[in-house]
Simulated scan of single mutants.
Amino acid sequence: MRPAHALINLANLRYNYLLAKQLSSSKALAVVKANAYGHGAVRCAEALADLADGYAVACIEEALQLRQAGLEHPILLLEGWFEASELPLIAEQQLWVVVHHHGQLADLEQANLSQPVHVWLKLDSGMHRVGFTPEEYPAIWQRLQANPNVTSLTKITHFSRADEPSTGRTEQQLAVFEQATKNLDGPSSLCNSAGVLAWPQAHGDWLRPGIMLYGATPFDFAQDSATNLKPVMQLDSKIIAVRHVPANEPIGYGSRFVTARPTRVGVVAMGYADGYPRHAPDGTPVLVDGLRTTLAGRVSMDMLTVDLTDLPESGLGSHVRLWGEGLNASEVAGWAGTIAYQLFCNLNRVPRHYQQ
Rank of each mutant, 00 (worst) to 15 (best):
Q356D: 15
L51P: 05
S24R: 02
A226I: 08
P262E: 14
G317S: 05
Y15Q: 11
A139S: 15
Y354L: 02
L95I: 13
N16T: 06
L144P: 04
K21T: 04
G38C: 07
Y341Q: 15
L287K: 02
G204M: 11
P138N: 05
W199I: 07
N228W: 06
N9M: 00
F344D: 00
S125C: 01
V119N: 02
A226M: 10
I75E: 01
G80W: 09
P88A: 13
P250R: 03
H319E: 13
M127K: 11
N348V: 01
G252K: 07
G326K: 10
S255C: 01
Q142D: 14
R352I: 10
A30Y: 14
A180E: 08
C44V: 07
I140D: 06
I8D: 06
H73L: 13
L113P: 07
A56Y: 05
E135M: 09
Y214T: 05
S160T: 01
Q172G: 00
V288D: 07
A241L: 00
G252Q: 04
A194Y: 01
M127P: 00
H203R: 10
S26L: 11
R321D: 00
V265S: 07
T217Q: 13
G324W: 02
P250Q: 02
I156G: 02
L229R: 11
G195Y: 00
L190V: 04
R321C: 13
H39D: 03
Y17C: 03
S166W: 13
I90D: 09
V350G: 01
G324Q: 04
L51H: 14
E92L: 14
V265R: 08
E79C: 02
W323T: 04
L287Y: 04
D224S: 07
E313N: 14
P209N: 06
L308M: 07
